[in-house]
Design a protein around this nucleic acid. Structure first.
Lengths: 229, 229
DNA sequence: AATGATAGTGTATGAAACACACTTACCAAT
DNA sequence: ATTGGTAAGTGTGTTTCATACACTATCATT
């Protein structure tokens, strides 16, 4: 390749912090590296950016290739450019974070050759490169995001109960929330549609199922409304 | 250069959205490009990342080189990687935004060969590359930032009056703010130290000068306190 | 019929947001 | 010295929102 600039190019990667929720713990999807460096270490899914794709496209492609996940909530997080973050040469990584619904969890775990596994956020193994730092920043971002934008449903099945939603908020934020206040507030936003269905699990009163209303959400976003829970 | 990876490298640039405040308008520092592409167009200060420097270092170096500004508030904004954002070849740009105190404005305008000029945010000329998009996102970020973190003083002189601070908030957020409520709220955070000095300008009652208390601010940040105005 | 488990609901209190108008201090002009 | 113009500075009442808190309803199991 001919250099039109006199400046050296850098190898570019994308890395994805994939969050999931199993009803109790916030989880992160990790893959075990098959090649050096950091062979056999756990790492964030990701890989090199190709010249003919945008950064977002690269992130989505890598997600499919390494975890089988597609059509997930995906947002750019931060770009990491420390000089020695890759032992081989200068590699700059654009980090993304993804929110994945439970329906996709099985696909994610089972797909392809490289081993992929969900880890609870409280029990993350040592990670390759500076991926621990990336994960740390992603978690902070998720916490912030969750408190001022209704993205929680991205981590839940299409139909969910208010208790499930509350458990999710508690897991991500690491706090206990009062049930009545939580329901009052969540419902006041008028973004949840009660379904005719109920969830019957176990020997107790069945729970009302809701689904998220994306139309109303878009309307709110356009008006610049944000809000916290 | 020998490729240890089989993937092509990309040219990497940093671009800086430099915000200033002249007492009335929020302003942005632009430079006129001396070389193609977009020769003679206005653009954000920025340039290529070198292999031996981090992204932050590159952003600060370019700021000094192109505008003479140093020791300013600087934060990474977003990374832009559309394929055709540079007409020559694939260039990925890590955008930053900076907040500059008025004392530095003159230095900024006067330095070096390339022409540099402050433009009010309401009268930005056509910009090179996708810099209009970058500016747009930076402005949104600044608005968000200002509403939940006390960064306003980064755009004011070391000594400032509450009215100046209010004008700044009004200029950035594009709203009118009630004087009494604003003062009540700002002072309640206990981050401003009243000085023995007053500002006398014009035929009216002189205004109390304050300075920001960085020590108390750090203490708040550590506790994870954020707040809005 | 009794037990155990989770769903679901209302009210009272305190804190913060918001709306709102007049007095004070200085300068300049007469 | 008085007047007029200009921006600084100040307090209260109202409303809205956050928080704390305990019991009843419904189902499955025995």
């Amino acid at each position: 390749m001919k250099h039109t600039y006199q400046y050296p190019r850098a190898a570019l990667t994308v890395d994805c912090v994939v969050f999931g929720f199993d009803g109790g713990d916030l989880q992160v999807l990790l893959i075990r590296r098959a090649i050096p460096p950091f062979k056999d270490h756990w790492a964030l899914p990701g890989g090199f950016v190709r010249v003919e794709e945008t950064l977002d496209e690269a992130a989505r492609r890598e997600l499919v290739e390494e975890t089988g996940l597609k059509d997930v909530f995906l947002e750019q997080l931060y770009t990491f450019g420390t000089i020695d973050r890759d032992p081989r040469e200068r590699v700059v990584s654009i980090a993304y974070y993804a929110l994945v619904k439970p329906a996709d969890h099985t696909t994610a775990a089972s797909t392809d050759a490289a081993e992929a596994r969900w880890y609870p956020i409280t029990g993350i193994p040592p990670l390759a490169f500076d991926h621990a730092t990336i994960l740390d920043i992603a978690l902070k971002r998720l916490r912030g995001k969750l408190t001022y934008q209704p993205v929680g449903f991205e981590l839940l099945p299409a139909k969910f109960t208010l208790t499930q939603l509350q458990r999710l908020y508690e897991a991500v934020l690491g706090t206990e929330i009062d049930k009545r206040n939580f329901r009052k507030k969540v419902l006041s936003f008028d973004l949840l549609i009660p379904l005719k269905e109920q969830l019957r699990d176990g020997p107790h009163r069945p729970a009302q199922l809701f689904r998220f209303d994306p139309v109303k959400y878009e309307r709110l976003k356009k008006k610049g409304f944000l809000f916290e829970i």
